[in-house]
Design a protein around this nucleic acid. Structure first.
Lengths: 342, 342
DNA sequence: GGCCCTCACTCAACCGGTTAAGCACCACGT
DNA sequence: ACGTGGTGCTTAACCGGTTGAGTGAGGGCC
């Protein structure tokens, strides 16, 4: 196809030779450092362009000990990941910030936390990443101690009660849950249930506790809170159990949108009309919530923006050694067609 | 918190000193190369473990000019990505193979193909990746020429008619579409429509052509094939248009599952019962198809396995310079509750 | 005992950049 | 005329591994 041979590997030396300067000068030019005449700078760039040269990043990070990648390990069953619009949106938010700094994202799916701890350790010790973003905190999460011991820059996505002293960003789940329960109560619901996620996940525990507190505060019946695995099938099973019980709830709050969609279909299958017989409220508003019939009311937040904030926080940590922990805007209730008076 | 100071950076020299050998010996040990007594090997590993050493990958790839990462750039509107279970499943399949070789995945979301071409060029020239996985081929895709000119190892996901001479893996969309149309026709449908994806995408064009051919072959009315952007809203809009037309179709084939879900809800909104009044058939069977009511019949395939195959193919290219192009198993029709006689 | 081999390991150059130190040159002030 | 300061560039050491050539000890064989 192409007439020229294998593209000869061109190094900084070739560029220097062609521009008639030393390696050092080329390095100065490509790192926008002062100490070069504009004319020389231009000549160097021209030479580099003509030769199609780009600095070897391994060599650069070896000598300057700066790294141009950050890590993100996700620990969820692969089967579920595809279905969690949340992660892709989150990643795209991270990317939008990383790209500006021409920094790469190292993504890895791990089976369990031990594997993640080992991975973070390898990443850090082998200087593959400058720092990491940690998500899905458990109570007593081993990663807190691990990255602490390593002295590894990291930003945690989760409530400070879960993330130890790590710089953290979190959504105020408790407030949002309370708001959701109050909204449903205001509509007249007295029996409200909550379909939560995996119990080990820290934010699930927080939401469960907030739900219980809100229900008690409003003097409602303490509704059941089945714990599930976040999958649609889990949501369907939990919904069937709730609707088959003697004290059938008139409203259900789901911990993600997939489960809410499943709940909607279970309601249809059982001949219940939504929202007349049953109100459904989803978490993690994605486009999916607008595609069902009726559309799903949801607690929506800007996941893309959240990812971007997290990435920015990580850069702050890399630059200054630490970053302020703070909540991101609380998910806002977006009423649609799936909620109404009982 | 911790009493010890900043973790001193430990290098191969420290390990060598502690094990009482030279740097070279440590290198041999850590690359499982012959020429070391077992006792020495053990001593070296022990020393490394005690010091918590892991080889600096930048240094390693600099001197050995081997790279431990592969690239994947995805070019879709961020808004859509979250909703495409396909990608996360695909990525998890890739990961499952990469992890075995302790190879990392460099993921990047790009806005357009020009940006991707530039990115691949940077990745390759700066030796950040050993090779790349290319997806979402357009007709006359500029990436074919670009990676060709760079001499960059790559595996393409797409039909050979789209991917030039690149080693490719693809799903046989044409056969699957034909099978889907024949199935609907066998149920008695005479007016079948197809809601396709973005027209520029190569596999959309292939599916469109196959659909038209299948319809003609069966002597059916040439149904309309609206082109959309793959999003649920696009699917809803297209479905509304189809159902409002004079010659309303009795069956619709969708190019992904999100659009089919949207179609289902449009049917409900228009008072049509599925499958009595209208049959719906989805592509890209994800768990979502089993969560709706009625459940969605779909063309299902093993996306995770596909990702794994692609990663394996890339390793073959890296090892041998090329790999055999071949189709992966054709998506199989999985009838569920959304299809039936008209 | 001398010769040759193999085994186990060391040595030093090298990968392709970065960077601190050094140097030549010129302008300027006195 | 001479120091002084700044600009613009070069030089060489260095980052932390890998690798091929080199070395010395020990064993087998005649």
């Amino acid at each position: 196809m192409s007439v020229d041979g294998p593209p000869a590997k061109v190094t900084i030396k070739d560029v220097a030779a062609r521009a008639g300067v030393s390696k050092g000068a080329v390095s100065l030019a490509f790192n926008n450092r002062p100490g070069l005449a504009d004319a020389t700078r231009d000549r160097i760039f021209a030479a580099a362009r003509e030769l199609g040269w780009a600095p070897n990043l391994a060599a650069r990070s070896l000598s300057s000990s700066r790294v141009d990648a950050v890590g993100l390990a996700i620990c969820r069953p692969a089967r579920l990941l595809g279905l969690e619009p949340w992660f892709m949106e989150f990643i795209s938010g991270i990317e939008s910030v990383l790209a500006e700094q021409s920094c790469s994202l190292l993504l890895r799916l791990v089976r369990d936390l031990d594997e993640e701890v080992a991975l973070q350790e390898r990443w850090w010790k082998s200087k593959q990443v400058a720092g990491s973003i940690l998500v899905d905190f458990r109570t007593d999460d081993p990663r807190v101690a691990a990255v602490g011991a390593l002295g590894m820059p990291a930003v945690a996505v989760g409530h400070p009660s879960l993330t130890g002293g790590l710089p953290s960003l979190w959504t105020d789940d408790a407030t949002a849950v309370t708001e959701a329960v109050r909204y449903l109560a205001a509509l007249g619901h007295r029996r409200i249930a909550h379909v939560g996620g995996t119990a080990e996940l820290g934010h699930s525990a927080i939401r469960n506790a907030a739900f219980e507190a809100a229900v008690r505060e409003l003097g409602l019946a303490a509704g059941p809170q089945p714990s599930t695995g976040f999958s649609g099938e889990d949501g369907a099973r939990a919904t069937r159990a709730l609707l088959a019980s003697a004290e059938r709830p008139t409203a259900i709050l789901y911990d993600n949108d997939i489960m809410a969609v499943a709940g909607l279909s279970v309601a249809a299958e059982m001949g219940l009309s939504v929202p007349a017989d049953l109100s459904l409220l989803a978490w993690d508003d994605s486009q999916l919530c607008r595609l069902t019939h009726p559309t799903l009311s949801a607690m929506s937040h800007d996941v893309h923006g959240f990812g971007a904030e997290v990435a920015r926080a990580l850069f702050t940590v890399l630059a200054t050694g630490t970053a302020e922990s703070r909540p991101v805007p609380t998910p806002a209730l977006t009423p649609r067609g799936s909620t109404g008076p009982p």
